[in-house]
Amino acid sequence: MRALIAAATGLALALALVLALTAVGSPPGKTSPKPLLTTVPAHP
């Protein structure tokens, strides 16, 4: 029974944390205009 209560408490805390972070929202910012290099340079 204690394990069930502990699991329910942990789930409730995790859900509260997710809801709090969702309410705060994402920080303001912008993405870089330069694209990331995703290819490997050719070997000589």
Results as ranks from 00 to 15, higher is better:
Lys30Arg: 15
Val18Ile: 11
Val18Cys: 05
Thr39Ser: 12
Ala14Ser: 12
Gly10Arg: 06
Gly10His: 02
Leu15Pro: 00
Val24Arg: 14
Pro41Thr: 09
Pro35Val: 01
Lys30Tyr: 09
Ala6Trp: 04
Pro35Ile: 00
Arg2Gly: 06
Ala7Arg: 12
Leu19Lys: 07
Thr39Val: 12
Thr31Asn: 12
Ala20Leu: 13
Ala3Ser: 13
Gly29Phe: 00
Thr31Gly: 11
Leu15Tyr: 10
Thr9Tyr: 02
Val24Leu: 14
Met1Asn: 08
Pro27Ser: 03
Pro35Phe: 00
Ile5Phe: 12
Pro33Trp: 07
Val18Thr: 09
Ala3Asn: 13
Leu21Lys: 05
Ala16Ser: 15
Ile5Lys: 08
Leu17Ser: 13
Ala7Lys: 12
Gly29Ser: 03
Ala6Glu: 13
Val18Asp: 01
Met1Gln: 10
Val40Thr: 14
Leu37Asp: 10
Ala20Gly: 09
Thr9Phe: 13
Pro41Trp: 02
Ser26Lys: 07
Pro28Asp: 07
Lys30Phe: 06
Leu19Gln: 11
Gly10Lys: 02
Ala12Asn: 01
Met1His: 11
Ala8Ile: 04
Val18Ala: 15
Pro35Lys: 07
Ala12Gly: 12
Thr31Glu: 12
Lys34Cys: 01
Ala14Ile: 04
Ala23Asn: 03
Pro41Gln: 06
Ala23Leu: 14
Ala16Tyr: 04
Pro27Ala: 15
Ala16Arg: 02
Leu4Thr: 07
Thr22Lys: 10
Leu13Gln: 06
Ser26Ala: 15
Ala8Cys: 09
Leu19Tyr: 05
Gly29Trp: 01
Pro41Ala: 14
Thr38Gln: 09
Arg2Ser: 15
Pro35His: 03
Lys30Gln: 14
His43Tyr: 10
Ala6Pro: 00
Leu37Cys: 03
Arg2Asp: 13
Pro28Trp: 05
Pro41Lys: 07
Leu13Met: 10
Gly10Asp: 09
Leu19Gly: 11
Thr39Tyr: 10
Leu21Thr: 08
Leu37Ala: 15
Lys30Trp: 08
Met1Trp: 06
Val18Met: 07
Gly25Ser: 01
Thr39Pro: 00
Ala3Asp: 13
His43Glu: 12
Ala14Leu: 14
Pro41Asn: 10
Gly10Trp: 02
Thr22Asp: 07
Ala20Val: 06
Ala23Val: 10
Pro28Asn: 03
Lys34Trp: 11
His43Arg: 14
Leu15Lys: 02
Thr31His: 07
Thr22Tyr: 10
Arg2Gln: 10
Val18Asn: 03
Leu13Arg: 07
Leu37Tyr: 05
Thr38Gly: 03
Val24Phe: 10
Pro44Asn: 08
Leu17His: 05
Leu36Lys: 13
Leu19Asn: 03
Ile5Cys: 03
Val40Lys: 12
Leu21Trp: 04
Pro27Asp: 05
Ala20Glu: 00
Pro41His: 02
Thr38Glu: 06
Leu17Asp: 07
Ala14Tyr: 05
Thr22Ala: 15
Leu11Ser: 15
Ala7His: 11
Lys34Ile: 07
Thr31Tyr: 08
